[in-house]
Design a protein around this nucleic acid. Structure first.
Length: 257
DNA sequence: ATGGCCTTTATCAAAGGA
């Protein structure tokens, strides 16, 4: 079973790339963030033509998440229970006995911003919800754009970013509290190249200079971690013409969907 | 080096992203 997360920064713009990527990589589930589409504008026909089903929760201009899958998902949830939030940032579905939760964590803007407080509050609500989900679904994958670089090695210049949004201590602690629930950062199950990142700013020739951060993650419950055989960042997608600023992250699980 | 790029919505600029 192959599961992927990709922040596409507009599904309208990136649709041809997404279709090509699906055809070439044949994932079982592709989690998308920042679709930036209202549900009535979702490009279902094109995705269906590529052999995929879709579940989506979108809004105008901002945010928006979707799950593209070969199988039909069930038990769909599109919000964190007990969090009053108008923003479309969560989508969960079950495929066989595997629970997939796609998240787009708030960016936070900067540590002085109200949006930063919203981000921390959002992460607490996520943590509370996941305690329940882990009990209900032992085979749980939590993946998406976390907007948090958990460790020094996940940041091209940790001194520059220390205390800044995406790498501040409270955010990193929130990430570690998710791990403590019983998740494993699948990327670190394997030996990886140094300076591996998932996001590079469009400016400053950041990609060419590899000035990036690893902020997109795939966390696996211990049952799924046991079955995980690979986790890779598809850096090639960041080299496409008119690319998203994020690269896809892929896990392989030794099980049938 | 304190802004540089990209997307959207809405005009010929502003907001948001990270």
């Amino acid at each position: 079973m192959k599961i992927v997360t990709w922040n596409v920064n507009s599904l309208k713009v990136r649709l041809p790339q997404v279709i090509d990527w699906l055809m070439a990589n044949q994932p079982d589930v592709l989690c998308l963030q920042e679709t930036k589409l209202q549900d009535e504008n979702f490009p279902l026909a094109e995705i269906t033509a590529a052999g995929y089903q879709a579940t989506y929760a979108g809004q105008k201009t901002y945010n928006g998440v979707a799950l593209l899958s070969k199988q039909t998902g069930s038990e769909i949830v599109s919000a964190i229970p007990a969090l009053d939030d108008q923003q479309k940032r969560v989508l969960a579905a079950t495929y066989g006995d595997v629970r997939v939760i796609c998240i787009y964590v708030p960016n936070g803007e900067n540590v002085e911003s109200e949006k930063y407080q919203y981000k921390l509050k959002w992460l607490v609500a996520l943590n509370v919800w996941l305690q329940d989900e882990l009990h209900k679904y032992p085979k749980l994958a939590l993946l998406g754009d976390f907007n948090i670089a958990p460790e020094e090695c996940d940041v091209h210049d940790p001194e520059l970013w220390r205390g800044q949004v995406l790498f501040s201590q409270p955010e990193r602690e929130a990430f570690h509290k998710l791990l403590k629930l019983g998740f494993v950062d699948s990327f670190r199950l394997f030996e990886q190249a140094e300076k591996s990142y998932t996001w590079w700013d469009y400016r400053m020739m950041a990609f060419r200079r590899n000035m990036g951060m690893r902020i997109d993650h795939i966390l696996l419950s211990s049952d799924l971690a046991k079955a995980c055989t690979a986790c890779v960042i598809d850096k090639a997608a960041r080299k496409f013409e008119r690319p998203s600023d994020h690269a896809p992250v892929v896990v392989e699980l030794a099980m049938q969907p």
